[in-house]
Amino acid sequence: MHDAERITLAHGNGGRRTRELIDEIFATRLGGPDLDTEVDAARLRLPGDDWAVTVDGFTVEPIEFPGGDIGALAVHGTVNDLSVSGAEPVHLSVSAFLEEGLEFEVLVRLVDSFARAAKEAGVTVVAGDTKVVPRGHGGGAYFTTTGLGRIVRGDLSAKSVRPGDVILVSGPVGDHGIAVMLARESFDLRGDVRSDCASVLPLCKTVWDVPGLRFLRDPTRGGIATVAHELSRAARATVRLREAEIPVRDPVRGVCEMLGYDPYYLACEGRVVAVVAPDEADVVLERWRNADGGADARLIGRVDEGPARVVLETSIGGSRILDELEDDPLPRIC
């Protein structure tokens, strides 16, 4: 493959090649009819609602993995942050850091995947930027996305969680963490683990109007254990998770057992944790199970009076403290 089919430093020099890169690869795929790639800032007309804004950077290795890639991840991650905040995603901006040597073919796949994810979530890309970094200075491609969303349900917060509330998860945990790790490492482990990388907008949207809904969160880095800690701190209460109820796929469990990981700390990229008043748990479960990606939704725990800590009730009937994540077992997964 010759250089014309790869990113070179010249693609970052601001000249003709930069313009071609933006116009031919990014704008054609991501831009709507109104996108003007020549201006420095997009002009938006926003109605007088409350708006949520979020920004997130994505650095996954490898940039393509079973079940997803960094392009899809960069959209879903930001769309999901808005969704769990009770906001309907509307606009997105993207900043791409491309490493010298990245093949165009790969870049096109990533941008196509980005475009698909954006379309699916109903967001328009209104602004973008690209930079090229020298070879060896940035694992293929990094993306940063900023999302703007219209707030539909504005009172979701860990602070409104109280003892008695129950904790639900929309599907099996740990798929993303294990899929990416298996794709990266040369372990002799077979197993069909795909990332759960997906938009959680449909799952969130379908429960925004449940009055007893207190809090939504997508358990990315640090997994559901880390969400549980956030809850226990905010509510100053004991969070109890029931091991037997937490859905974990068999291959994920197998890899965890072999390598000594706790699946509860592994990242998900397409799941939601909800905290809800106990009498409305069934409503949320019912709606999730009828929505895209919620078939395996479960009630996995509850919030109890007691010191701020997270207790795992093990499947043999014992209990242990689920500590905050100490050292990250899996670097660079989202």
């Binding site: 706790d262 009730e313 093990t314 043999i316 009937g317 014992g318 209990s319 242990r320």
Partner: peptide
Amino acid sequence: LSMAGIRSV
């Protein structure tokens, strides 16, 4: 023993 919380039972 630790992960299953066996001592606690």
